[in-house]
Design a protein around this nucleic acid. Structure first.
Lengths: 95, 95
DNA sequence: TAATTATATTCGATTTTTCGAATAAAGTCA
DNA sequence: TGACTTTATTCGAAAAATCGAATATAATTA
């Protein structure tokens, strides 16, 4: 039995993936540079498991992708369009 | 004690308000016309309490506003910018 | 191979979201 | 006022998200 997920469900899932401050911060960081988890930890001052968990959500939603280099894993945005969306929302809610 | 909510928290909240298919559908309907709850019920084929509850979320996040006309309450978008954002996300997730 | 580094995943508890069903409230009309 | 229409709100249960802490995995290096 094949389950078809419609565009509204998918969009809602996508918005849900964006609905956490840490995940928004990660997207913003990655809009400038690829970055490994240890760098994000340093910049955001959050612990490893917290960041890793949120990266998992972003990955599951196709928002970031990773590539291993030795023991480090570097993350990048799969689609830069998301940066504009985050900026627009920041503008709407800001001030 | 005053609590300051930062831009990332606010943005996350906003995205959360968009993270339900019914709420996205409501936004899309309101992008075309103002509409009362009973009309939304008919168009979306959902019951009154379901729609009303989601309107409450949208209202709490300043996404829609309402105006009473007799027994009916008409809803409109407070800011049309949101329509573009929803469209962009639909494009990203759609195929 | 053993220790180390970097990251992912799991576990259990807590909090938040969602829902159907029921009830309340507010305006209208006879 | 009482019945009716339209919408909001509450309640309790179920589902989902979040978190800190602990553990697992994978690559590297001594």
């Amino acid at each position: 039995m094949m389950v078809t997920i419609d565009l509204y469900d998918k969009s809602a899932e996508y918005f849900k993936a964006l609905s956490h401050p840490t995940r928004i911060k990660i997207i913003e960081l990655l809009s400038r540079n690829e970055m490994c988890v240890c760098e994000m930890m340093a910049v955001l001052n959050l612990d490893q498991s917290h960041i890793s968990r949120h990266l998992m959500v972003l990955r599951a939603n196709g928002i970031v992708k990773d590539s291993r280099e030795g023991t480090k894993i570097y993350y990048t945005l799969t689609n830069k369009d998301i940066v504009k969306i985050v900026e627009e929302v920041k503008n709407i809610v800001g001030n």
